[in-house]
Computed example of a mutant assay.
Amino acid sequence: MEQDNNSSQTEPQEVFTPIPQARGASGGVRWLGLGWDLIKERFWMWIGVIIIYFIVSLIISTILGFIPLIGPIISPFITTVLAAGVVAIAHQQYETQRIDVDTLFFGFYNKRYLSLMGAYGISFLILLAGIIIAILVSSAAMMDIIYAINSDYPDEIIADMMVDNASGFTLFFVIIAIFGALSTAAYWFVPALVLVNGYKAFPAVKASLAAVKINLSGGFFFFILLFFILAISLIPFGLGLLITIPLSYTAMYGSYRDIFYHHNIGSQGNNGGIGGNSTISLNKTAESNIGKLVS
């Protein structure tokens, strides 16, 4: 990626790096902050984008729902490509300060949908493997409870059996939680890496896992904070979701931008931003090598 040699010494120069960088626990807060900066600059546009996204997703799911067996399986893969388009819009706004709604379909018309679907499939298989392992490990406890219920055992006996087998149920949910986290980690950075940087499915998943591995504390705080924000947004009849849902996408893009870009100050070649101490500016970004997306 070329740098602008005429940039002022105070202008951040952002350069994509395939090697993810550790940003520490404070990264989680910073990613949400960047996501909110994007939302507030184009507030009504983002609400419009998320409404269009849900309408199109609903139409796709409804149409495919009429296809027996295959339709419900294909539907999540199609809507995954559409969801990746929301991340592409965040990138477009970051680079150009504008939003084009048709960028929502960028994953379809740039022929990168196969990589997105492949990576989503890998993520799904990780979760499926966790479910199978959890069932196998906890099958004895579950079978005892199911047999007792089907045999019309008294409620007191069933309750005692559930207490006696509590460790088995706990192990079941722990395994599901671990593999669910791995599944999320495998796909976290995939949409941006595929649509912005042209990654294929396996390299994107590998890079995503590597980025999460060295940013566990930041990712933990990020999801804890995002969970509370989403919970609070449900209080006023769920209307807050019109803000917090796009925020979840823009904040995820913010994490990608922070972890996969060097932030060098001016033309001095200062690499201090690698340590995570620099601040990303929305209005002063270096030229991107992804001209097809922002043009």
Rank of each mutant, 00 (worst) to 15 (best):
G85V: 08
A88S: 10
Q97V: 00
H91C: 05
I89G: 05
G85P: 06
I74R: 01
I67R: 13
I73D: 06
L82K: 03
I63Q: 08
S57H: 10
L58N: 13
V87M: 12
I89Q: 04
A88H: 02
H91T: 05
L58E: 09
A84L: 09
I52S: 14
T80V: 08
H91P: 02
T80R: 04
V81A: 06
F54P: 05
A83V: 07
I60K: 12
V56Y: 08
T62E: 10
L58F: 13
I63C: 09
L64Q: 11
P72M: 13
S57N: 11
A84R: 00
I47A: 05
I89M: 13
V81P: 01
A84G: 10
L58Q: 11
I78K: 02
I51V: 14
P72W: 11
I74C: 05
P72H: 12
Q97A: 03
H91E: 11
Q93L: 03
T96R: 13
I47K: 07
G65I: 11
T96M: 09
G71R: 04
I52H: 06
I74G: 02
F66D: 11
Y94D: 01
L69D: 07
T79D: 05
Q93K: 00
I73M: 14
G48W: 01
I60M: 14
T79G: 09
Y94W: 00
T96K: 14
Q92P: 01
A90R: 01
L58D: 07
A88F: 00
G85H: 01
Y94F: 00
I63D: 03
L58I: 08
A90W: 09
A83W: 07
G85F: 00
S57K: 03
I55E: 07
F66Q: 11
I74E: 06
I55H: 13
T62P: 05
I51L: 14
I73A: 15
A83S: 15
P76C: 13
I55W: 13
I47M: 11
F66L: 15
Q93H: 01
L64E: 06
T96E: 10
T96S: 10
A88N: 03
V87A: 10
V56G: 07
Q97D: 07
I74Q: 11
T62S: 13
I47E: 01
I52T: 15
T62L: 14
G48F: 03
T79M: 09
I52M: 12
I89N: 05
F66R: 12
I73W: 11
L64W: 15
V49A: 06
L82R: 04
P72K: 11
A90G: 09
Q93D: 01
F54M: 07
S57D: 05
I89R: 03
T80Y: 08
S75H: 08
L64S: 15
I50Y: 04
G65A: 10
F54D: 06
I50P: 00
V56S: 10
Q97S: 00
T79C: 07
Q97N: 09
V56I: 15
I55P: 03
I78W: 04
